[in-house]
Amino acid sequence: MNLTLKIWRQSGSSDKGRMVTYRVEDVSPDMSFLEMLDVLNERLILEGDDPVAFDHDCREGICGMCGMVINGVAHGEQRATTTCQLHMRHFEDGAVITIEPWRAAPFPVIKDLVVDRSSFDRIIQAGGFVSVPAGSAPDAHAVPVPKEDADAAFDAATCIGCGACVAACPNGSASLFTAAKITHLGLLPQGQPERDSRARAMVEQMDAEGFGGCTNTGECTAVCPKGIPFDTIARMNADYLRSASK
C-alpha cells in the first residue's frame, strides 16, 4: 500500500516546528506502524535527511515508551493498542495519516515526536510507592488479600505510563495516570499506612506539574492501551477528599 504521512517535525525544544508531508510506498499490511516509520527513516537517512525521531523500545506494548497521536487519536483508532502494536492492515491504501507528538505543557517536545514525560516520574516520586526498605518485609503470607481486591489493584497497576491519557484529554489532565497508582496501592493492605498522604501528595504534584483539571470526559480510558478503568479517578478523588478532610 502507498501512504501519505503528515508528520510533526521539530528540531529541538526551541524550534517552532511544522508539519511535513512524506510519501511512503510499498507498505506491507503486516508491518507495524513503527516498522512503517522505520522504512521511512531508512530512506531519509540515505537521502541525507534527518530521520524522524520517535520514542520506542520494547515494541510489544508494555514498556510505554512509544506514543504518537495518529489522525487525532492517541495511539491511533485501534482500541487498547499501543502505537507499536498497531498494524498497517488497519489503514487503507492511499490513506493520509497525520502523526503528531503528545501535546501537553508538562510533556515538552524534545524532538519531532519525542516528548519529555519526566513529570510522570515526579508524580510517582511524590508518593507512588510503599515505604519498605529491602529486607524488612514480613512473610508474603502474613497478610491475606481478598482476591477481588488483588485483581482490582492489578487492573490499575497495569498502567504503562505512556501518557496517552494526557494526550487524549481535552483538558490535558493526568488524572488517569495518577489515579491508577493511587488505586493500585490504595486497594492493597500494604498501601494503607500511606494511603492518605499518598493521595494528597500525588494529586498536588500532578497539579504543580501543570496538567489540566479532570472534567470526567472519559477520553483517557477510551484511548488507554491497558484499559485502566475510569473509576480509578473516583477512587483518587475519594482518597484525596478524605485526606483533605483530615
Partner: peptide
Amino acid sequence: AQGVPFAR
C-alpha cells in the same frame, strides 16, 4: 510488601 499485585 511493596504492593506487587501477585495472583491470589
